[in-house]
Design a binder for these strands. Structure first.
Ligand SMILES: [Mn+2]
Ligand SMILES: [Mn+2]
Ligand SMILES: [Zn+2]
Ligand SMILES: [Zn+2]
Lengths: 139, 139
DNA sequence: TTTCTAAGTTGTAATCATTACAAGTTAATT
DNA sequence: AATTAACTTGTAATGATTACAACTTAGAAA
């Protein structure tokens, strides 16, 4: 089950991160947009509601949220950074046709890995690319 | 077993990609440096041998090699792009302490994925982060 | 509620990686 | 050796991210 905006807000408070208007707006945006948006997308959308919002603040806020563990960075492409408020372990599939990024469940325990004995693993990212079903049927 | 420089050279020739001096230098560098170098690392190293080499050429060449399937891009970090001449499917582990990127074998078939039925998967990247054994013992 | 101030926000400028482009050079075919 | 499309180079343009100083505010304390 997804964390609600209220729960996320409490997590911030518990970590002594100030609940500024801008941060709450970004957090709310992330919790309601599961599309793995870029900084630009967030900025363009939120600007309509908060005209004084600065892009620097988006960068700062996402960095704060990342350090607090409330968002994760998705680097599936080498030319754009995307953000994700789904922080549980899951894989990402990017359709190279429609460019959409899909989440998928994955059993990380099922990974048969050789050569990682004695490595302390803190973070796992799985990125797939290909064609999504919709684009497949449309050819 | 690794592809030798000679084999890689033949692959280029077969794909009608011209064997320019610069391309061969970059290709040779990649086939002898399995450290997942950045453009800057390649440039700085090769410049010593080929003083007229341009960074633009490194970019162009890596793009050509990527399209020819002779190198792969590693986007394990959001702030630097690395290149890999090991093109078989394998995972990458980055030690957040010494910054080294390690290869590891992985059985991609063992992935238990839910929700990717009817998705056509062309590319799989697995990125882990943590602490390598050396850095662990040094604390 | 008012006061206080460390922390947050903003706009602008600086930085850094990557790409565009035009002029000179070369691989490889003839 | 001549030819030419493709390649390389240096420089300039672009675009994303970061640095910074002045202004503003969240939240604690009085
Ligand atoms: Mn996701
Ligand atoms: Mn590798
Ligand atoms: Zn699609
Ligand atoms: Zn290490």
């Amino acid at each position: 089950m997804e964390k609600t905006f209220e729960k996320l807000k409490n997590e911030l408070k518990n970590k002594n991160i100030r609940l500024s208007h801008q941060r709450l707006k970004v957090l709310e945006y992330m919790s309601t947009h599961k599309t793995h948006p870029t900084v630009d997308m967030i900025y363009n959308d939120l600007q309509k509601e908060v005209p004084t919002l600065s892009k620097t603040t988006i960068y700062n806020t996402l960095d704060t949220l990342k350090n607090a563990g409330l968002v994760k960075v998705v680097t599936i492409e080498d030319n754009e950074v995307r953000y994700d408020s789904r922080t549980h372990e899951h894989g990402h599939f990017k359709c190279v046709s429609c460019e959409e990024i899909f989440d998928f469940d994955i059993k990380f325990d099922s990974f048969a890995t050789k050569g990682l004995d004695n490595f302390k693993i803190n973070n796992k990212d799985v990125y797939f690319k290909g064609i999504c079903p919709d684009c497949s049927t449309k050819q």
